[in-house]
Design a protein around this nucleic acid. Structure first.
Lengths: 219, 219
DNA sequence: ATTAAATTTTAGTCAAATCTAAAAAATATA
DNA sequence: TATATTTTTTAGATTTGACTAAAATTTAAT
């Protein structure tokens, strides 16, 4: 089944909002899509008619099983293209989102399968987010937030939850990238900030909100 | 300047029709785009307003200098993606057109420049058609039609003018591909058919219309 | 429990790109 | 050259996705 670019964008953004809360509401989706609530309501009706959505007027909505499959496929396409743009074309990891946003709508199954194979079936995109496989299975990446690392330990940055330009700007400032080695030094109880050492740069302190968004794994 | 997918498709097809005759008429473009003449007229007005087209009612139209630049850029994107699909993803050369048709509309300049560099600045696409460079220059590929090869000679297939499914089916049947080595054996005056030997297959005879569409170069 | 505020939906427009049917212009034919 | 045919354009309708303004519903606050 084929969907319009607009439909796909709605589906994808509903999927992302559902990661935070199971039931999604009209305004937050309108905000995510930079559009108006009335436009969202129109599209919700359409998606419901196509059985992609469970939706009750005024109550909220969530993707149906079918809708979820479609969403995961879009996410797969997006993340594979991001991986391609960074590893093959040499883009910076914080510059690829907008381009992948366009490429993800080219939905030829054979293309995506061959791209996946060409890239050697990567498990995560350049932001550390897992790439669903052809059957919609999402690899579990064992990782935890810096805010939850209790011991004084060496860890490797594996993903970043908030990928806003503001966050990426900050990460660049701290010289933090996917794959960067960090040492967690100490935690300050007053504001729950954390001192870390990034590679061989001087130790620095990151705030709780930042720490919560940086995920790492061991070794 | 950004154009809609529909506008780009019109521009590209006008460009292609202009290769055959300088002035294009409404019906032939409608036919090319699988749409109705009335729709074409509507779009022509729009493209004229954007200064992409020289157009006189009832007389015909051609791309302006500006329109030509835009067209060449679309062709560049299309052919680079075709080259990518065949050489990197392993598609057959006769399967990539439809996919490239979608990819060509992702028009980030940085993307195309990096793709070109990644592919090592190829001169021709998998069909043997020249790929315009970043400045819109189209490399001249010295080649001639089989129908024009007078001597008994070994040649290499460099491009195919008619890329319809019907033609591609026939070429597959003859085992003819871009890069295939041919020997021109003899020419029959009755119907101007030509006997050729393809690789190490038994010699076969191709008709004049087919020969006219197969371009080759020496060595 | 009412009222006020916020959220969501409906109703009615709008623009882009398409279509059909009819009118206008150009071309071909007798 | 007058008429028939083909080509092109105009006029008006349709679909998709978005918008504004107003109405309906839910949630919060007094």
């Amino acid at each position: 089944m084929k969907f319009s670019v607009s439909e796909e964008n709605y589906i994808k953004n509903i999927y992302h909002l559902q990661q935070q809360s199971d039931l999604v509401n009209t305004n937050s989706l309108a905000n995510e899509l930079q559009t108006k609530a009335a436009s969202v309501t129109d599209m919700l009706k359409k998606l419901q008619m196509k059985k992609l959505l469970d939706y009750e007027k005024y109550k909220g909505f969530r993707l149906s099983t079918k809708g979820n499959k479609v969403a995961i496929n879009i996410v797969r396409r997006h993340r594979l293209w991001e991986y391609f743009l960074v590893t093959k074309l040499g883009f910076e990891w914080d510059k690829v989102h907008a381009i992948a946003e366009d490429l993800e709508h080219v939905s030829n199954q054979d293309l995506i399968q061959k791209l996946d194979s060409f890239l050697n079936y990567p498990q995560t995109d350049p932001h550390g987010d897992p790439i669903p496989d052809g059957d919609g299975k999402i690899p579990v990446i064992h990782q935890l937030s810096i805010a939850d690392v209790t011991e004084k330990k060496k860890v490797i940055v594996s993903s970043v939850a908030n990928q806003s330009p503001a966050m990426l700007e900050l990460l660049n400032h701290y010289h933090i990238n996917i794959g960067t080695e960090l040492k967690i030094n100490q935690r300050f109880s007053f504001d729950e900030s954390i001192e870390i050492k990034v590679g061989k740069y001087a130790a620095c302190i990151i705030s709780k909100p930042v720490a919560k968004n940086i995920f790492v794994h061991h070794e």
